[in-house]
Write a protein that binds this DNA or RNA. Structure first.
Lengths: 337, 337
DNA sequence: GTGAAAGCGCTAACAT
DNA sequence: ATGTTAGCGCTTTCAC
């Protein structure tokens, strides 16, 4: 009945006699005793907490990721702290400070950027941070990301196979590696087309307005592509909006596609062709990696996983897909504009 | 230069001579010293942490709320732990246990239900939990919610003023007070119409499929209303999808409206008339209340705030609005045309 | 006004 | 195999 014996029992330490263990266990149940994470944290320096860094939790991709992260973390007894960085290195640093003070067992950076190396330094070594969504710019880090280049090339090939040659790409910000990789995959396929293909590239953000603006500027320049890829679904939605406003029909006059396969993309109101990321897996594995390397098992090995995305073809690129599924009745909306 | 003096300085305690205080402050800066929240938590029982309970973080309303909560919490030095309850009382209880063990300074329950009283009990008194989004079923609690009944009646009156008399309402689950209140506001206005009005009510969930199902069943019964209200925007989107599938035009043949005014509602692709909640205020004030009452200033007063929502009229009910107001940033579009 | 000492609930040596 | 002891970094009496 001494403190340390109880401690040993709780932690499943070997050196306890079966009998005492059971007696202790019994009392624990009786008293509904639960060890205090706080006290543990004071000793060990780590609390059962995971930090999740995202640029903007309101961007539909992140809630889905957060949900998956949260579920897996919870399963393992960890709480998830959400941190909205706005892609601002200063905010990021402040958050990391806070998370360190809180003794977070690990940090998942889902919105990395050029400051990744600084992040690794700030968290106290590569073992304490796991990157996801965007491949880290810092070398030798743990990460789990989608193969964005593959996704982009698959998507571009899909458009090419439909006969498109003048294809527009509304790129994301240059600081985001996932945006860059998607652009890269696009470029690669377009390059293969040689003189036959024409790639129109506009740089923007991850937001809806970015897609709207791109279409607008192409229209002004009188060089609207026959197919447009948005760096993510949000941007693609912006593209759809602008096309719709300009009374252009999709996919007849212009085909549109995005990335992420956010829930909205699958709505028949949108029917957006998109490169589906396995968001669930990203979140789940990010947690696993974070907790594995953080557990200090003296591992020196980095864990770096790349998950292949899939192409989800819908009405905005392939008309017939739209027929199989209920076609969006353009009349109701286009008459209004 | 003694521990307790430093402690006094850090906490801004009065009993320190100006000179010593400044000297200590100086050294603190020099050493970049930050008090350990963990050690503090061990003593005080509370860590700078806020728990946010939501039914489903992937439901677009909650990320927006979470963002607002997160921003305000951060401003005050608190971390936000997201908790996905799935509207399951068991999950909720487990989360509360975890949050207590973590010494959370407060809990914001954004997805309350019939178990609210149990929640209050589990967290250890009304002072430690703030309800938002759904008015709590337990009496004498802190909360900040929208006036759902008002929102619903305003919306219904809008439809009536457009000439609608047969109006459908796709209700939410009965356990959610916000859903009930919305239904109530609807009923009230319809009752005023007497024999002239006809209210068709279907119960469902907060998800897209719920809206789809409602329309299908009305169609099967051959009693489709001329206007349909979804208990939230997600459901309204489901309604739109089903109508679209049935080749019915919106708003000519059927008008549609929702609640929350989620970002998507404002997209020209959807243009959904919706009752706008001031989500930012809900989140911000929830945090303020949570931290205020939790600070133990011996307050006995409950804080209960009700915020009036606004009606955002768009194309799904009013045809002409589509003409007037193409999109949020109209400029981008008008320049394009 | 300041310092000394006890203790929050644990873990990790070190005894026994 | 179990008990004792010393902290982890703070706050909080209680002396001075």
């Amino acid at each position: 009945v001494s403190v340390s014996t109880v401690s040993r029992v709780v932690r499943g330490h070997a050196d306890v006699q079966k009998e005492t263990r059971e007696r202790v266990l019994e009392v624990i149940r009786e008293l509904n005793y639960r060890p205090s994470p706080i006290a543990r944290a004071l000793v060990s320096g780590r609390s059962p907490t995971l930090g999740l860094l995202v640029s903007d939790i309101a961007n539909p991709f992140y809630p889905q990721l957060a949900k998956s992260v949260e579920r897996e973390a919870r399963r393992r007894g960890y709480a998830v702290v959400i941190c909205n960085t706005d892609d601002d290195p200063k905010e990021t640093q402040q958050y990391i400070e806070m998370l360190r003070d809180l003794g977070a067992a690990g940090i998942i950076q889902a919105s990395g950027g050029p400051d990744d190396a600084a992040v690794v330094e700030a968290v106290g070594g590569w073992q304490r941070v796991t990157f996801t969504n965007r491949r880290p710019t810092a070398k030798d880090c743990n990460y789990v990301v989608s193969d964005n280049e593959l996704g982009a090339s698959t998507l571009t090939e899909h458009l090419v196979s439909l006969g498109h040659r003048r294809i527009g790409f509304v790129a994301g910000p240059d600081y985001a590696t996932n945006a860059r990789e998607r652009l890269q995959g696009f470029r690669q396929v377009m390059a293969r087309l040689g003189g036959q293909g024409q790639a129109l590239i506009t740089e923007g953000t991850f937001e809806v307005t970015s897609g709207r603006r791109a279409v607008q500027s192409w229209l002004q320049a009188g060089e609207l592509p026959t197919a447009i890829i948005g760096v993510n679904d949000q941007v693609a939605v912006g593209v759809l909006e602008a096309l719709h406003y300009a009374n252009l029909t999709v996919p007849d006059q212009v085909a549109v596609a995005g990335f992420d396969d956010v829930e909205l993309a699958d709505s028949t109101l949108v029917g957006l062709t998109s490169v589906r990321q396995h968001i669930d897996r990203l979140g789940r594995e990010a947690v696993q990696i974070a907790l594995q390397t953080t557990s200090g098992k003296g591992t020196t090995r980095r864990i770096q996983r790349v998950i292949a995305p899939e192409l989800a073809v819908r009405q905005t690129t392939n008309w017939e897909v739209g027929l199989q599924r209920p076609a969006r009745d353009a009349k109701a909306f286009s008459e209004a504009s």
